[in-house]
Each structure stands twice: as structure tokens, then as C-alpha cells.
Amino acid sequence: MKKILLALTAVAAMTGSASAADLAARPYVKAPVAAPVANWTGFYIFGGGGGGLSNADQSVVDTVTGTPLTITQRQGGSGWFGTVGLGYDWQFNSTWVAGVFADGQFGSIRATIQDPLFQITGSQKLEDSWAAGVRLGWLVAPNVLSYVNGGYSGAHFGQTNFTNLAGVPVGAHLGSYNRNGWFVGGGVENSLNIFGITSPGWFMKTEYRSAFYNAKTQTELLDAGNVPLVNSIRANSWNQTVSTSLVYRFNWTGPVVAKY
């Protein structure tokens, strides 16, 4: 009987040691971590530049009566510009982002102005403009936003100095003026965390914009004394631009990782 008890005690001791050894050998497994989630909510600033096209439907009218003296014809031009701005975005679910923004543009987008009756021509420059609007975007990827935008815009157009067909100044001009209008556009904005380079907060956006400004009637003036002439030019302005800007987002420190 004593031999049986001793044998059972030895087996129990060996089993307990083996169980303890098995527990000690088990590897440590970390708890699962949620996938990184990017958040677009917050303020940002940007600056960049690009090129633009200008078009205008023009006609010559009588200065006193406003009666059209020629048929309407479309003139155009092109140029470059720089831009700076700021905005605020709000990501309201995993897919959509809405925001407000304001920006200014400065540069030299020129368009042709003509009076076929006097056979004179000149160049009118869009010197600077501003815009304030809203945008709505769809996240193609967590760090890539495709968006459309729209809003109000204002522009300053410089003085137009006329020459004859040979390019000789004729001593007449159109004065500078301001006009208001509206714009629509769209673009893509993406994080610069690419090619293995980490750039928290830095983005790049490329945007197309089409701005339409109200028609303006300008009296042709002699350079000497700004004496009004009998003809005036009536024209609207339609400007298309493409820009690329560097964006910095103040709230962006990289993907937000959920903690447990």
C-alpha cells in the first residue's frame, strides 16, 4: 500500500512540473491594434502658383447712348500668377470632407482689347484677384482628397494702352477697374508622405478654377487730360486657371492610432 501511495505522489509531482514548464514557455501575444485613421479636420495654409487663360466677349458701343456699334467678338490671352490662402476643413465621416477657404492671386494674365472702328488694340492685365468659398471633398484614400469648390470672387484689371496696327502708341487708353463675380472649380489634395519620406502636416494640391466677372463698359480716353472719346468698350471676363500649391495642415501629426 505504501509503495502505491509513493508512486502516485511521484506521478503527481512530475505532472505539476511539466504543466508549469508548459505555461512558462508560452509566447506573449499583444492585443490587436486598430488600423491607422487619418483625420482632415482643422486649419491649413497654402501657397503656390500656376497659369491661366483669359477670354472676354467684347463690343464697341456709343459712349453717350450705349448703342452697339460693332458685333460682339471674343478676345483672349494668357499668363501666370501666384496664390496664397487659408482654410478650415471638417471631416464628418470616413468618406466626406467639407470646408471653407479664402485666397488671393497676383500676377499677369493678359487679354486683348480691340476697337475695330478706330483700328486700335491694347492689352488688359488681370493684376490681382481674391476668392472666398466652400468645398466638398471625397476621400479617394485616407491621405488623398478629391474635391469641388465654388464661391465669390473679385478682380482688379489694369489700364489698357492702345496702339495702332503697326504697334505705335496712339495716345488713348482704358482706365483700370474692379469687378466682382463667382467661380467654380475642383482639384486633388494629397499627403506628401510618399516614397518612404515622412512629412507630417505637408500636403500638395492641384486645382482647376473657372471665374466669371460681370460685364463692364469703359469709355476710351485720350492720354492728355483723360478726355472721353466717342467710343466705349463693353466686355465681360472669363478666366480659367490651373495651380499647384504646397499646403500645411496645423492639426496633422500623422495617422491617429486608437489606444487600448
Rank of each mutant, 00 (worst) to 15 (best):
S78L: 04
F106Y: 15
A102N: 07
Y44E: 11
L69H: 01
V60G: 03
F43Q: 08
G104D: 14
I109S: 04
V64T: 11
A102Y: 04
D103L: 13
V100Q: 11
S54K: 11
F43I: 13
F92P: 02
G77V: 06
L69P: 01
F46N: 15
I109L: 01
A102K: 09
T72E: 13
S59Y: 07
A56K: 05
G77N: 09
V84S: 05
T70S: 03
G79W: 01
W96Q: 10
F101H: 11
S108I: 00
A98D: 05
D62P: 03
G66E: 12
S78T: 11
T63F: 01
D62M: 04
F81S: 06
L86G: 15
F81G: 08
Q105R: 15
D115S: 10
N93K: 07
Y88I: 08
F43Y: 14
N55F: 10
N55S: 15
I45W: 11
I109F: 00
Q58H: 06
V84K: 10
Q73C: 01
Y44F: 14
G52D: 12
Y44L: 10
G79V: 02
T65K: 06
N55C: 03
D103C: 08
D57M: 03
A98R: 05
L53D: 11
I45A: 15
V64R: 08
Q91D: 05
G77R: 09
T67E: 08
G104H: 09
Q91W: 01
T112P: 00
W90A: 03
Q75V: 04
T95C: 08
T95S: 15
N55H: 12
Q75M: 10
D115E: 11
S108W: 02
V84A: 13
S94T: 13
G76T: 09
I45D: 07
P116F: 12
G48F: 05
A98L: 12
V64N: 14
S108H: 07
T70D: 09
F106A: 15
L86F: 15
W96K: 13
S78E: 12
G50L: 01
Q91V: 00
W90E: 07
A98C: 07
G76P: 02
L117H: 12
L86Q: 14
G99T: 01
D115H: 10
T67V: 08
A98S: 09
S108V: 04
N93E: 10
W90S: 02
T70V: 00
Q58R: 09
A56V: 00
Q105W: 06
F46D: 14
G99Q: 08
A111Q: 00
T72K: 08
V60A: 10
Y88V: 05
N55K: 12
D103N: 15
Q105M: 13
F46K: 12
L86P: 01
S78M: 11
Q105F: 09
I109N: 04
T70R: 07
I109E: 06
T112Q: 11
Q105P: 03
T83G: 03
F46M: 15
D89Q: 04
G50K: 00
F101A: 11
L117T: 14
S78I: 03
L53C: 03
G76V: 02
S94W: 09
F92R: 08
T70G: 04
V97L: 10
G49R: 02
G107H: 03
Q75E: 15
F92Q: 11
Q58V: 00
D115K: 10
A56P: 04
N55A: 14
R74E: 12
